[in-house]
Design a protein around this nucleic acid. Structure first.
Lengths: 326, 326
DNA sequence: CTGAAAGCGCTTACAG
DNA sequence: CTGAAAGCGCTTACAG
């Protein structure tokens, strides 16, 4: 340890750099060490430190799909919350798949300070080796005793059903995601429930990956059948799916919203500028990341979380894809 | 080391788990160790391993702005390339700012196997402590002898100028980014060059953060002046900026493209469904990540990179924001 | 208040 | 082919 050249022992240096000087190091030595650290540009080696402490200062964020733009805001929120003290490690897999238990084992061998798990499937959680501090994000409907931050998607889905009913829609189709993620199950079930209340029938139900192209294709194939059944609105489980439908509707010269109403979930920034603007259930991505990061920080500080299941409000944003612009 | 219970020494186990058995461990012992590893579910501790080896298996991706959806595709590309062998650590700062030297020091203390630096400023690179294997991404115009993967933005910017000239535009405005990132300088200069060739004058030049709202506001304030100068097209340095202009144009009841043409750079997925579709310079984000990841992998394998400055083609995608849809 | 020593879990010359 | 030993850079009881 180079900074021992300040004329003190490595132990003293370690105490100072860790801020554990309270009544253990003389003011004089603290100053000496700080000076030496500054001069040498010394920075504590993360590896050695972590090994000695038994855990690293890395927070791992496990997520099914970073390439979803929605997720970028979640990441930003997490970063805001955890700040400088921890490094954010992103564990991502392709196309909405959850990491395998083997992946997680490898991750865990880095001895993360904590885990943030976004949109986990029930199976993933069941297979997860008990892993120290952990906060779940967007895990509505998943049984777990880990603290979690969720969207109240049911609320938004209900408002969406109300909205469509008030516009007179009687028969709609639903485009779901193929991932086994619980949040999509909750979105679907909550919407079905709301639809039933209003006597709206859901004629059909297809699922694709979270990808505009896949969704557009699925819609193109299904539309003739749906039209025959009298479908007047397509409810998509994400905005990305909805963009695909909008695109295909334009190709097919279908008037939106006159001939077909389209809705999404997420409220990505682009839903404001899409053609037409997309009516969607707004989910506060940034707040999700921020709240989960804060929860984890508390957990790491040894606090117990007062409200284990934090709920973030969802709201319906009405735009041109369901109502004609004024 | 628990698996030593296979009846051999820790050294032998280490040899086996690292695949360095060639002519050094008997087949019998290899089998014994593998069996024990499987039974105990043992996985090499990343911390201890890294400390002994002197470097970790973490690849750090330093980027100015993850919340740019463009970047999600870059990340996906990097992941595809580096695969299972390395963990991807994301170092991000807010709103297009580059990490400080102190941030980087902290990162480096994790002893990353390699560094991937996206869209660095010249200053950032100058301050970067010499840091082992490193690949630059989207660093056009930055002097460095590190291998790099860049977009040929000049090509696309030239095509954009050609396109606007062919449509008869004589006076345009340019919306730039406030970040000191070199790529934006290159985009701007290449477009200015192309404009000059065609006798197009760039009447004005404003800069905002990469944010729809900021861009919309800047446009709203500047438009009266620009209109007075005869501006008929706004060229934006990112699609995100362009979305802001599109939104504000709609608010102001400006017909796009009749009264005002709008263009971007990036070709985000949403540029297909925006209102109208956005004419933009397509930059292959996924390929950027993939190519950079592959370069780094070679570097880590001790190979020398044959082509230090890999160039990825950019192309112009023409949509409804510059030409009336057929 | 301070320093010598043990130990975190692994890897790698080294001697056999 | 194999194992005992040193060492990676730090932290933390422990004895003074």
């Amino acid at each position: 340890m180079v900074a021992a050249r300040a004329g003190v022992s490595t132990a003293t240096v370690s105490l100072v750099t860790n801020g554990k000087t309270a009544g253990r190091v003389s003011a004089e030595n603290i100053a000496k060490v700080q000076e030496a650290v500054a001069e040498l540009g010394y920075v504590v080696d993360g590896l050695g430190s972590s090994l000695a402490k038994g855990r690293s200062n890395i927070v791992i964020l496990v997520a099914p799909d970073v390439s979803n733009p929605f997720f970028a805001n979640v990441i930003a929120g997490v970063r805001e919350a955890i700040g400088e003290a921890y490094q954010l490690l992103l564990s991502v897999t392709d196309a909405g798949l959850t990491p395998s238990p083997a992946d997680v084992r490898n991750l865990l061998s880095l001895r993360p300070a904590g885990l943030l798990v976004d949109a986990p499937s029930a199976q993933f959680l069941a297979e997860l080796p008990s892993a120290g501090p952990m906060v779940l994000m967007d895990a509505a409907g998943v049984a777990s005793d880990a603290p979690s931050v969720n969207f109240d998607v049911a609320q938004g889905a209900g408002m969406l059903a109300d909205h469509l009913a008030s516009l007179g829609h009687r028969t709609v189709a639903y485009i779901d995601s193929v991932t086994g993620t619980e949040t999509f199950r909750v979105r679907r079930e909550a919407f079905y429930r709301g639809a039933r209340v209003h006597g709206i029938s859901v004629a059909a139900d297809v699922a694709t990956t979270i990808d505009m192209g896949a969704s557009a294709l699925a819609f193109a194939q299904a539309w003739p059948g749906w039209a025959a059944q009298g479908v007047t609105a397509v409810v998509c489980c994400t905005d990305t799916h909805a963009y695909g439908v909008l695109q295909e509707a334009r190709v097919a010269r279908l008037g939106v919203p006159q001939q077909l109403a389209v809705t999404g979930f997420d409220d990505l920034p682009f839903s404001q500028t899409s053609n037409p603007g997309l009516t969607t259930v707004h989910l506060p991505a940034n707040e999700l990341g921020r709240a989960a990061g804060q929860q984890l920080l508390r957990l790491l500080a040894g606090e117990t979380i007062p409200v284990p299941g934090l709920m973030l409000e969802s709201t319906l944003v009405v735009r041109g894809s369901t109502v004609t612009a004024s």
